[in-house]
Design a protein around this nucleic acid. Structure first.
Length: 513
RNA sequence: GGCGGCGUAGCUCAGUUGGUUAGAGCGGAGGUCUCAUAAUCCUCAGGUCGUAGGUUCGAUUCCUACCGCCGCCA
């Protein structure tokens, strides 16, 4: 049976348009998805992303916009769909928590948990912050019962609510968190374990409709809707082609969640508890990324440094933002984002290394051989040929293993080492010099065959990171999808014709405003 | 306040299960080639590896304290 994998981004709880921070998560995850599709076959990979549309904040944002909640979330969802398209996010299931299929699964799981006796009712009196949608204890608040996050006065509320038992699942949750590689990178595992070293308060999973009616109704008490978090987690699974419990039992052990570090606790503690409560297995990996800063400062609306990520695609061309974020940011750590750095990366890596290498190789092929490949790659006996061919031959597997380990930046580094080797090889073999001697043309042919075949392998390996660029280079090489995937030396054969060079990444002279 | 992480060349970061001259990329300086997008290629950074102690034959790498930044929790 073929190995399969299920991959998700966090679903977005957003009352505004997507920004670069969202884009980072989408682009990282999508590159991982694209890699897995190539490795396992597209039919063995499912990819879910979407929007989290219930809850008080969404309802309030809708009210502020003068819209009904559903109309408002339709608009937000459309914005995100548009952003996915603009960012070239590959095929995915776009979940909305207001979709009937999703709501049905949430209700099924609530009912099952209730039937198992893991949800109970109790009266609760406490201080509630509307913005946070949660209760606070007095010592958590600032003097005067002010919410530390929103700087507003919390409300004193007394109401009955439903709770999910958590302590019952503690041992099982801890066992999971301890599991090697469950949380990646490892730094976040320690944080999660620390969270688990303290008593777990049972999770309140309901909101009375009297206070908030924008949510999924509890199947066992129509006076309540479920809390947004309980609702949202199931979005990872609800719109899969088959969301039966049997199917979910198969999917969860191969499920990879990609999230930001801010929602570590909910995913490391609550979500596993929810799954265990309904007798489902815990998912396989929690992949946690850091935040993007802007010139050293946090992205924030007030500082006005929020950028529309799609505008970068338009300004710099496809794949550039994606390349930059994956190459420059170490997965799991915070990264710094600035246009100055993008331009630096663009010029040095994309224009000078990748783009220029493609140009010079194709130009020589055109000039000396009318773009025909006339030798078999990998068969040269010059001492310079061996190392180059070995470098190209090893690139794909090395780069791939690093993607499996979420080391996207190092994976790209490996690919660029191959480009580097190619540029050095050209200088060392100097085909442009020996081409002046007709007697040495066959050697020139050999050199170019090696380079063209190497370029093919690099372009193919680059596909998850730079899908558009990869396709462009493969097109210049006149290679179809099947030929593109061949191992080094098995691809382009003598007699093959490539196309004339066109600049892939024209240099940018000045940073754009 | 508790716990954890980080602090390495101008910038972004690797790295060291303790051991000869601490690495890469970018930026900057000089040089080279001419196939190429004034690109490539070669050479050049003398950085107290946050500070102060300790362990050790020997610490950037282990321990302690402290300083700074950050995260989580309270």
């Amino acid at each position: 049976m073929a190995e399969r994998i299920h991959i998700t981004t966090a679903i977005t709880y957003s009352n505004g348009p997507p920004h670069v921070g969202h884009a980072y998560e989408y682009l990282v995850t999508d590159s991982f998805v694209r890699y897995q599709r190539r490795k396992l076959g597209a039919e063995n990979v499912t990819f879910v992303t979407g929007t989290d549309e219930h809850g008080q904040k969404n309802r309030d944002a809708a009210a502020a916009a003068g819209l009904k909640p559903k109309e408002f979330s339709d608009r937000i969802a459309a914005l995100f769909r548009e952003a996915h398209k603009g960012l070239n996010i590959s095929d995915h299931i776009f979940v909305r928590t207001t979709d009937p299929v999703h709501e049905a699964l949430v209700q099924r799981m609530l009912q099952r948990t209730y039937d198992c006796g893991d949800i109970y009712f109790k009266d609760y009196a406490g201080l509630y912050c509307v913005g946070c949608e949660r209760f606070y204890t007095e010592k958590e608040l600032l003097p005067g019962n002010i919410c530390p996050t929103h700087n507003t006065r919390v409300e004193s509320i007394k109401e009955g609510n439903y709770f999910l038992k958590l302590e019952k699942f503690r041992d099982e949750i801890v066992k999971n968190v301890r599991r090697e590689g469950f949380i990646r990178p490892e730094r976040y595992r320690n944080e999660a374990l620390q969270m688990l070293s303290e008593p777990l308060d049972d999770l309140c999973i309901s909101r009375p409709k009297a206070r908030l009616d924008w949510g999924v109704e509890l199947p066992f008490d129509s006076r309540y809707v479920t809390y947004v978090w309980y609702d949202a987690f199931w979005a990872y699974l609800s719109e899969l082609p088959d969301n039966s419990s049997e199917a979910l039992s198969e999917v969860l052990p191969v499920t990879e969640h990609f999230i930001g570090k801010d929602i570590l606790k909910t995913h490391a503690v609550y979500w596993p508890a929810m799954l265990l409560a309904v007798g489902l297995p815990v998912y396989r990996h929690l992949n946690v990324h850091g935040f993007l800063n802007f010139g050293g400062a946090r992205f924030s609306k007030s500082s006005g440094n929020i950028k529309d990520p799609v505008s970068f695609e338009r300004a710099y061309g496809p794949d550039v933002l994606r390349y930059f974020l994956l190459r420059e940011v170490t997965y799991g750590l915070d990264g710094d984002f600035s246009e100055e750095r993008i331009v630096e990366r663009y010029n040095s890596d994309l224009a000078n290394d990748l783009g220029n290498l493609t140009s010079r190789v194709l130009s020589m092929a055109a000039r000396y051989f009318q773009s025909e490949v006339t030798a078999q790659a990998g068969t040269g006996n010059d001492p310079l040929d061996g190392p180059l061919c070995e470098a190209f031959a090893a690139t794909a597997s090395k780069a791939g293993a690093l993607i499996d380990d979420l080391a996207f930046n190092r994976s790209l580094e490996v690919i660029w080492q191959a480009l580097d080797a190619a540029n050095k090889y050209i200088v060392a073999t100097a085909p442009f010099t020996i081409a002046k001697d007709p007697a040495q043309l066959s050697r020139v042919a050999q050199i170019l065959a090696n380079l063209i075949e190497g370029l093919r392998v690099v372009a193919d390996t680059l596909a998850p990171f730079m899908p558009v660029t990869s396709a462009k280079i493969l097109d210049l090489l006149n290679v179809d999808a099947t030929l593109a995937r061949a191992q080094f030396g098995q691809g382009i054969k003598p007699g093959h014709r490539v196309k004339p060079a066109t600049p892939l990444f024209p240099r940018i002279e000045k940073p754009k405003a």
